[in-house]
Amino acid sequence: MLGYLARRVAMTLPVMGVVALIVFALLHLAPGDPASIMAGDAASPAELAEIRARLGLDAPLAVQFVTWLGQILQGNLGLSLHSHKPVAEMIGSRLGPTFSLAVATVTVSLLVAIPMGVYAAWRRGRLSDRLVMAVAVLGFSTPVFVVGYGLIYLLSLKAGWFPVQGFTALTTDPVRFLRTATLPTLTLSTVYIALVARITRSSVLEVLGEDFVRTARAKGVPEARIVLRHALRNAAVPIVTVVGSGAAFLIGGVVVTESVFNIPGLGRLVVESVLARDYPLIQSLILLLSLVYILINLAVDVLYTVFDPRIRY
């Protein structure tokens, strides 16, 4: 197990390396010279030369890459071009809302989607099954911002239950956190619920067709126990896989949702940094979000052994 873990972690290193290369290339493949991009249109030649020297832009690209990577690895993410604050500090101040939103979304999604999927599989082919699956397709196809504005319209503007925008941290005021976080969480959850419900249904269905389920039925095991103990447990691996790969949708969804609800999290920081062309900030954000995604999928691989003891490495 430990050996496997070490190998698995080692496997992510080349991927991270390629990600770093792409992120580095982003700035350097852009038309124009990075110094003039950073300095803006009004910079004088002397200023450009100064920036170029300061950032080491006169060195060969390979040297620049190694230098840049070295700084990143030492935790030096550089300064924001816009606010001149350290990038690490800016990112740190935005982690909280996004983290709480992501945790809430995954929790809510699993709590809703797994029962949905199991129920649909159990009632296979009936009206309730079709309804559940129709909801899943709809959730999957409706753009995140349309869902968000739909919820705002119905539950904030019409019903008046929730504030339209804004965010309060859990630690500041738990009640206000619930009021402000509910709609964004629901918005983000739609895609996740759709993904997880569909995979749960199809994996449970597959297991329900296996011989050992027939045996269990034949010896009189109660139906609920068959579905929950035998089928769901064996369906765990594909479900966990989807939760991991779905994290990409979650990260993309966070960017959109935080814009819709005006939440000061990482997603909005991505948009803000892009609109301001704040390159050090953009680069760090991409690196961070990719790292998170890679780590989630690493965790998923390790979780396989927990859910399915037959998988041994």
Binding site: L195, I199, R201, S245
Partner: peptide
């Protein structure tokens, strides 16, 4: 499965 991201869109049938 290290860094997959495409599977979900193809996972499972939509409707009977």
């Amino acid at each position: 499965l290290t860094t997959t991201g495409s599977a979900p869109r193809r996972a499972g049938r939509l409707l009977p």
